[in-house]
Simulated scan of single mutants.
Amino acid sequence: MKLIKYMIVIGTAMMGMFTFMDQADAAQIGIGTEQKIVQNPLELERQAIEEERKKEIARQKKIAEEKRLAEEKRLEAERLAAEKAKEEAEKARLAKLEAERKAEEERKEAERVAAQKAAASSNKNATASPVSTTTSKKVITVESTAYSNDVADNKAYGGRVLTATGHDVTDSIYYNGMRIIAVDPSIIPLGSKVHIQGVGDAIALDTGGRIKGHIVDLLVDSKQDAIQWGRRHIQVTLY
Rank of each mutant, 00 (worst) to 15 (best):
E100H: 07
G166K: 00
G230H: 07
V38K: 08
D171I: 00
A27C: 06
A26P: 00
S172E: 07
L219D: 02
S144T: 12
N149F: 00
E104I: 06
I63P: 05
R68A: 13
A82Q: 13
K124E: 11
P185R: 05
L218Y: 11
R160Y: 06
E109P: 01
K62N: 09
S136C: 00
S144P: 02
R160G: 02
K137H: 07
V38T: 10
K138H: 02
A95M: 03
T33Y: 05
A103K: 15
E105Y: 01
K62A: 13
E50H: 08
F18G: 11
G16F: 12
A13Q: 06
K155C: 02
K61V: 10
N123E: 15
V161Y: 06
E76P: 01
K155Y: 10
D168N: 14
K193T: 09
E50F: 04
Q35Y: 14
G158C: 03
A70I: 04
Q116R: 11
V38D: 00
A114D: 01
L97Q: 15
T170A: 09
G200C: 13
K137N: 09
T145Q: 02
E71Y: 02
S192A: 07
A182H: 09
E56R: 10
Q23Y: 04
D22H: 14
I234L: 14
A115N: 06
K117P: 00
I234K: 06
